[in-house]
């Protein structure tokens, strides 16, 4: 009888072993999301002066897009680009944004329509008769579906500060706002330089270990090659999840073991008392950030949006990491 039991047990576990193998393979083969490189195929310095249409650009989807004339009806399907477009003075030309758009304030009231940004209805989109659709971190299928509908669509998904600058310049060129784009980027770079100088003075041992959590159920956190990872570094922090690639759920054990000195939460807008809930988690009281009360909720719009306010996000984080620098 015992023997039979063991036999059965062995069978069960050999099954499990197959499972291990399968899942492990799947993991190894998964393509890492490549960080978006230079958009615009190297056209990082657009020509000054009025733009000559039709204009041909290469966007982050890797395709060449021809913009026939200066866009007059623009739909932005990603809040970061909305911010850029408004910063370029295109209010009035932007005819639709997403339900996630909250900046500039009251932006949703300034447009004709508010769309579902994640899974936009192509029909609704077409009915707005836009001459330019601006896309961001949308998947390939969405981009293609919109293009198949005969709409002119550009897709930019910047994953680094430099890429944000380039994206702003690119959007400026497409919308015939090159000068304003250049000025905006210059302003951002200047602010970033001031910040960088401040942070550069901080010795490595005084840079806090930082854990960023964007989802309380799965503990989603930004790993290497994410925009957030760069923001943490620029703000003078050390991301505890930098051994992960891209956005990943992290194991609570690893967080506790890494013992972050600062914890940043981005979901405060939908989870009430987010800091308090995190501090009450069992076992997290062993973490320095909890012990010293350095658990912060930040505006997710600010830190999650690679747009014109991205330097402000660095500043906001830097103030959390190094309050003494900003006294």
């Amino acid at each position: 009888m015992v023997f039979r039991w063991w036999k059965r047990a062995v069978q069960c576990w050999s099954l499990l072993a197959v499972l291990f193998a399968l899942v492990a393979c799947g993991q190894g083969g998964a393509p890492a999301k490549s960080p978006a490189d230079a958009p615009g195929g190297g056209q990082s310095t657009p020509a000054k002066g009025p733009v000559a249409y039709p204009l041909t650009v290469r966007d982050d989807s890797g395709e060449t897009v021809t913009i026939p004339k200066e866009p007059a009806r623009i739909v932005s399907l990603i809040p970061s680009h909305t911010e850029t477009l408004f910063a370029l003075g295109l209010e009035g030309r932007v005819v639709a944004v997403t339900s996630y758009d909250h900046y500039p304030p009251d932006v949703q009231k300034k447009v004709e329509a508010v769309l579902d940004g994640l899974n936009p209805s192509v029909e609704k989109l077409a009915a707005l008769r836009p001459d330019l659709v601006v896309l961001g971190s949308h998947n390939r299928e969405t981009v293609q579906a919109i293009r198949r509908a005969g709409l002119t669509a550009v897709m930019y998904d910047p994953q680094s500060l430099d890429a944000v600058y380039r994206t702003i310049e690119q959007l400026g060129e497409i919308t015939n706002r090159t000068d304003r784009a250049a000025a905006l980027v210059e302003q951002m770079k200047a602010k970033a330089r001031v910040l960088a100088d401040k942070v550069a003075a901080v010795p490595p041992e005084r840079r806090p270990r930082v854990y960023v959590e964007v989802d309380p159920d799965q503990l989603f956190t930004p790993g290497r090659n994410t925009f957030m990872d760069e923001l943490i570094r620029l703000a003078g922090g050390v991301n505890i999840a930098s051994d992960l690639e891209g956005w990943k759920p992290i194991n609570a054990e690893k967080v506790i073991r890494s013992n972050p000195q600062v914890i940043v939460l981005t979901y405060g807008y939908y989870v009430p008392d987010a800091e308090a809930k995190l501090k009450q988690r069992r076992g997290w009281d062993a973490v320095d950030a909890v012990k010293t009360g350095r658990v912060y909720v930040v505006d997710s719009d600010l830190v999650n949006r690679p747009g014109p306010r991205v330097v402000d996000a660095v500043e906001a984080l830097a103030k959390l990491f190094h309050p003494d620098l900003f006294r």
Binding site: A252, E253, I256, R257, R282, G283, W284, D285, A286
Partner: peptide, 13 residues
């Protein structure tokens, strides 16, 4: 601390 927390507060529950 973290070892105690991991064993008692994460793994054991």
């Amino acid at each position: 601390d973290w070892e105690v927390a991991v064993v008692w507060d994460l793994r054991l529950p």
